[in-house]
Structure formats: C-alpha cells, structure tokens
Design a protein around this nucleic acid. Structure first.
Length: 570
RNA sequence: CGGGGUGUAGCGCAGCCUGGUAGCGCGCCAGCCUUGGGCGCUGGAAGUCGUGGGUUCAAAUCCCACCGCCCCGACCA
C-alpha cells in the first residue's frame, strides 16, 4: 500500500491528554483518533493491528474447540434482573430505553445472554460440552476512563463461555481455555504473568488473571521470589512472620490525642511506630455494623474481608453509623467496649500491647491487649499484601509488581445456569444443571499492552505477528527516478508473495520518513535510494537492530520474505 | 461523586493578572531550493478564543452559570 494514498497522519507532539507511553505512541503514530473520553476511532493503521490481534484470538479459540457466535450489544433489562446482577452492575451500565419505554442496557458483558442462549439451545448431555465465544464491543460506564484503550467506555472484548455436565468436565474446559490464553499472549509476543484473582462482580469460585507486567498497569500483584505463587493484590494471601508475644499488667489507659485522627497523626503525636497501633474500621456487612481491626501500618483489603465473612457485601460505614457504633466522632474508634462484632487481622492474634482508639473524642487507649481487653469474634487474613510479605505457599519473600489485566478466566459454576434454568437431561433421563466457565480477553487493551511493552524512545516496535504491515519500504528521495522504479518493482514483487508492504512514496525529506518509519514501528525496513542503488543494493534493517544490511536488488524480495516468515513463526 | 487543573487554528502553546477587534512553533497549501535522520527561503489558507448570560463605549481577558477534557481521590477514621 502506498502511503501517499492512505489516511496515516503522524504527529510530532503527543496530545496533552495522553499520559502513558503506549497511549502517546498510538496517538502519534496515527493509530487512533479520540472522539471523547474513553471513545476512540481506530484509524486504518490501528485497525490493521487490531485485526491481527483478533485473528490470533480467533485462531486459538477455534483450535481449542470453541465456536464463534455474535450476540446483541443491546440487551433487555429483564435478563439482568433474572441473574440478580442488575443491582450489582447498574451503575456500571449504560441504560437506555426504546420508544415503548422498554428498559435496555448496552451490554457490559454477556453471561446473561449466553446462558439464556444455552438454556434454549442445549437440552441433552449429548450436546455437551460446548464452548462458545464472541468478539465484539462492550460498554461500561467507567468511573474514570483513562490511558486511551486501557480503560475505555466502549472496547472490544473476546468472551468465551463453556458449558459442561459436571465440575470435573468444567475443569477440562477451563484448562483448555487457560492453555489457549497462554498461546494467544505468546503469539502477541507479550510477557504475561498468570496470577490468582478475585472473582468480583462475576461471581464464581476460582479465577486466574493474565497480567502484562508494566509500571503503568492499574492492577497490583505479588509474586513469590521462590515458588510459582502469584496473585492479584485483591486476592493475595500471606504467611505470617514469626511473632513474639508481649504482655503487660497495665490496664488500658486513656491518653489525650486532641484532633489526632489518622494513624499517621496519632503515631507522630505519641511518637510510636504505626505498627504499634491498631486501626479500627467500622464497616457495614449485609446491613449490620461490624468493626475490623488491622495493624496500624497495614491496609484493609475489602475483597478479602468480604470473602472471609462468607461472601457478604461490605462497605465502609458512614459517619453517623460510626458515631452510633463507637459513641465517638469519626477518628477515635477502638475495640474496647464495642457492642458490635469485632473481626481482626490474623497478625493481631498473637498477644501484643497496642494503642487503639478510645471510643471518645480526642482519646486513644494505651496498653490494649486484644482478647484480654476486647473480645474478638474471629481472626482472618484481611490486609492487602505488599512487598516483602511471605508467600502463603512456601514462606519465602514476595515481590510487589504492577500489571495490565489482559485476560481473565473464571470457573463460574452454576450461578448463571441456575438463574436461567440452563439444564440438560443426562443419560439416565434426569434433569441436571450445566456447569459454566467464562473467559475474557480485552482485545483492544491487549493491543495497547503490546505497545506499552514494546517500544523505545523513537516509537513503537511491533511484533511481526501484530504489526499492521510487515515491511516498511522507503524511498528517501522520490525525485530520484531510478529509486522509484526499483522500489515500485520490489513492491510489486513483495505483494505478489503475499507480503503486506507500506510503501512510503511521499515527497518528504529523508529525515521525516525515517522518523516516521521508526515511530510507526514496522518490524523490517527496506530502503531503496540513489546511494544503495549505486552498488546495485537495497538496504534492509530490522526495527530492533542498529545495523543495516545491504542486499543485491535481485535478492531483496527473497531476503525480506525470509525475514517476515521467520518473524511470524516465532 | 469530592478535590485540583484546563479549554485560544489539525497538534503543542503564548496572550488573560493590568479589557481596546488574536499570536508563536509544528502541521497544511503554493513556489523556489534541498535530498540519508523531523532542511532553508518566500507567499498563503485556516480560529463562533468551550457554551450561555452579565458588567462595560468596548470582553479571549472581569463576573455568574453550564458543558467538555485531564489529574488525584472516592476504604484506611
């Protein structure tokens, strides 16, 4: 394809609202155009790359035995009521209605639709297992769209759903998808870390996330330095370090802490490390207030708390509830004398002497020993892990990292199949419920993750498998007749061999063309110029290499074909 | 939703404080020149100064409201 005939406009400066490298580069290289917050048009170059990702996903889904369907983005509200998720997700959904005032939503995901479909289409164990998938736009009313395609209001997702006769069979389907994901991300040349994850609003029992490690990633995770354990911070557990008991004969004694509300303020005021303080958080769990205690230097993890309490919904109590529960203004809650259930982090189980809130204005308590001075209903690991915590599996140190979630696989179980009565008749003629799994890949996000992970100061470095074109053909001076003639011939030859070529035939200065070639980042660049032709050669350079090679004109096509084939295979 | 910022030509920005009919760089168009890392010169096109209202003889500039966009937060008492 000739550049002079395309709609590719590169930018010298990145738009000021682009923050991270991949977003800036995708804008500068002319892959995307912004329409509004979280809304982007894919320009021809960006779309070509996106289609490459989609193709890889399709090929691997098909290879894993999944079948493609296409479902409506527009969905009746009723099916969300039926699964019970309308109340959970309604703030995240775009809600609209038709002229008859019927309520509809723009689908943020498709569990409801697919389960309804399975219930209609599948009736016998002979039709199982089945895995169906779709690649299409999904819509989420994100609180804060950002980073270009990373968190957009409309994005393209591949979702697959498996239906099985039993949990054991479902495990197989899950594993097949897991393996397909490993292959997909490998083909995208992505360095992906698989971590254990929280199931969140999806529900279900078990899940893994596929994370592209990147400092700009929105998710935190920990990985063990020694064994294979890795988990999203929302879910990561830890092994407790050895602790020594600490006892005192002194009883809790109040100390005046005027206006010292936060842990940091109290610690500074009393000149004690935050770890000697206990933070008392008042929560509402299934409508009832509870207190949660964590070490002063740690953060409570609501996901872990909710799980520890048996999957209830938890949220911070409002100021009034806190005042009613503690009898004190916000900022001075403590466990001593509380009449509501008190849960504590497992680290607090070994008796030690702590400072806590005093349940009275401007007051904290010294010499508090949990168990002795305050009843604790139960101890659970409920804090967020951090760098240096010990691995729950092997006890070695864990590292904290950041990642971009590009894929997520869930064992859903029967949550949706029950809600939609997706059953089948087994061999004995008994009605059974299907066991489901669901498997998502953020296709547009994956594309950006590739750029985030593969670029340099000059621009994008596309992996051959995703690159919008395979070869960049540059004529530095289009006024030079022989260069153009030779380049045109090479272009024809390459395209006849099925190679996708972007021929930069613009009447631009050489510097502009080389800068643009680096920015757009096609894996191979061929230059035909007065200089190279003087020796009867074509210059060939890999985007990743510093050196150029000079190849005789008549060998140029074959050399490029070889390079492209080698690159695409790996 | 809370806090902060910002909105002036396709992109990046100045002008605003101190009101007087809008400017710079890049890009774009034309011509000349140049031709291996964002070249040089000349001439041009392009902006309802986010929107609405107000103050004023006069508003990009001051005031009010609204909207868009960006950042931080929205759990750590």
């Amino acid at each position: 394809m000739r550049w002079s005939e395309t709609l590719i406009a590169t930018l010298r400066d990145a738009p000021q609202d682009a923050e991270i490298a991949s977003h800036k580069l995708m804008m500068r290289a002319g892959l995307l155009s912004k329409l509004g917050g979280g809304l982007y048009t894919f320009l021809p170059l960006g779309l070509k790359a996106l289609r490459k990702v989609e193709r890889i996903v399709r090929e691997e889904m098909d290879r894993a035995g999944a079948q493609e369907v296409l479902m409506p983005a527009l969905q009746p509200r009723e099916i969300w009521e039926q699964s019970g998720r309308y109340s959970v997700l309604k703030d995240a959904m775009f809600k609209i209605h038709d002229r008859q005032e019927r309520d509809l939503v723009l689908g943020p995901t498709h569990e409801e639709v697919i389960t309804d479909l399975a219930a209609r289409q599948i009736s016998s164990y002979r039709q199982l297992p089945r895995t169906l998938y779709q690649i299409q736009a999904k819509f989420r009313d994100e609180i804060r769209p950002r980073f270009g395609l990373m968190r957009a209001k409309e994005f393209i997702m591949k979702d697959a759903y498996s239906f099985d006769t039993s949990w054991e069979a479902a495990d197989k389907s899950y594993q097949a998808m897991y393996d397909a994901y490993v292959r997909i991300f490998k083909r995208c040349d992505l360095n992906v870390k698989v971590v254990e994850a929280d199931t969140g609003a999806m529900g279900g029992n078990f899940s893994h996330e596929f994370m592209v490690l990147a400092d700009s990633g929105e998710d935190g995770l920990v990985e063990c330095e020694s064994c294979a354990y890795a988990a999203n911070l929302e879910r990561a557990d830890r092994r407790l370090p050895p602790q020594t008991e600490e006892r005192t004969d002194q009883l809790p004694s109040p100390v005046a802490t005027p206006n010292q509300k936060t842990i940091a303020e109290v610690a500074a005021f009393l000149k004690r490390p935050a770890s000697q303080l206990v933070k008392t958080l008042i929560y509402v769990a299934d409508g009832k207030p509870i207190a949660v205690l964590v070490p002063g230097d740690r953060d409570l993890n609501e996901h872990k708390l909710a799980r520890a309490l048996g999957g209830v919904t938890v949220q911070m109590a409002d100021d009034r509830t806190i005042e009613q529960a503690t009898g004190a203004p916000v900022g001075f809650a403590g466990p001593v004398g509380l009449k509501i259930p008190v849960y504590a982090d497992a680290e607090l189980k070994v008796p030690r002497v702590y400072v806590t809130g005093g349940n009275a204005a401007d007051t904290h308590l010294l010499n508090v020993v949990l168990g002795r001075d305050a009843a604790v209903t139960a101890y659970h690991d409920v804090v967020t892990c951090r760098e240096g915590d010990l691995c729950p599996k092997c006890g070695e140190r864990m590292r904290e990292k950041r990642g971009i979630e590009v894929g997520h696989v869930f064992k859903l179980g029967t949550k949706y199949s029950k809600a939609f009565d997706a059953g089948y008749l087994d061999a004995a003629g008994n009605r059974q419920i299907m066991v489901m799994g669901c498997y998502g890949i953020g296709v547009t996000r994956t594309l950006q993750a590739v750029v985030e992970q593969s670029h340099d100061a000059n621009g994008i470095i596309w992996p051959a498998s995703i690159s919008p074109f395979q070869v960049s053909l540059v004529v530095p001076n289009v006024q030079h007749r022989e260069s153009m003639v030779a380049a045109e011939a090479l272009l024809k030859e390459l395209e006849a061999r099925g190679i996708e070529v972007l021929f930069d035939d613009r009447d631009e200065r050489p510097g502009v063309k080389f800068k643009d070639a680096d920015l757009i980042g096609l894996p191979v660049r061929a230059v035909v110029s007065e200089r190279s032709l003087a020796d009867g050669k074509v210059e060939i350079k890999l985007r990743t290499a510093a050196d150029k090679m000079m190849v005789p004109v008549q060998d140029a096509c074959q050399t490029l074909v070889d390079i492209v084939q080698k690159g695409t295979q790996s």
